[in-house]
Design a protein around this nucleic acid. Structure first.
Lengths: 111, 111
DNA sequence: ACTCTATATTACTATATCGGGATATAGTAT
DNA sequence: ATACTATATCCCGATATAGTAATATAGAGT
């Protein structure tokens, strides 16, 4: 039988940093917004309500991590999500949270 | 057609905090170790190499988040993973990292 | 060259949190 | 009660990072 693989510290750090990337609400908001279509920074500023410097910084982090791509178009820079596993992760978390809430509601209405 | 649901800020924070929970290598190590079987704190200290205070603190965080359960047994306290979606998340990240590396290796051998 | 616009970067402050030592608490045994 | 063991908690130094104002850079148009 296949023994569960042992994870060395370097692997754990890589996995952890992946999660850390997703651990900021503003970054999730950006990714969620970008999920619909490619957008430039100004559009993201308008869509999220955050200021330009903040958006730009988060985009830089996401770009470094290889989650979004960057494309110059005249004066503007357009960003796009290139790593779809991001959404897969969010879906797993969302359904878990949802079922957790459903259980709570059941317990409350039951008592 | 089904429009992609809008996420409000509270939801984003809940999802983000879920990821933040997983963003510490030591917590991942604990969860990975606990994944095999129920263990008490001392066993986890031995298995991970971290000190007792640190393990205990992380276990408290995981417990608060509802990821592990706690069961007193005489002098010791036994912990167990109760949220299996944790491993689902790790699997998604792992395979993403793996395929990323495979692409890199291919690109290198190709050049 | 100058101006305007869009984006990136720098410098700073405030906050959060990890790891660890010291201590507290709770259960067991003598 | 005392001693011992296992775990939790408190406190602190060190580090990291979010958000923001100010500044820099780059491209387009005059």
């Amino acid at each position: 039988m296949a023994k569960k693989k042992d994870l060395n510290d370097a692997s754990l750090e890589m996995i952890a940093s992946r999660f850390k990337l997703m651990s900021e609400p503003m970054r999730l908001k950006i990714l969620h917004t970008l999920g619909e279509r490619e957008m430039n920074v100004s559009e993201l500023v308008a869509a999220t309500g955050a200021n330009q410097a903040n958006i730009s910084k988060h985009l830089g982090i996401l770009y470094e991590a290889g989650v979004v791509s960057r494309r110059k178009e005249g004066l503007t820079v357009r960003y796009r999500v290139t790593d779809e596993t991001i959404f897969e992760l969010c879906d797993v978390v969302c359904s878990r949270l949802k079922s957790h809430f459903d259980l709570r509601r059941f317990a409350l209405s039951d008592g």
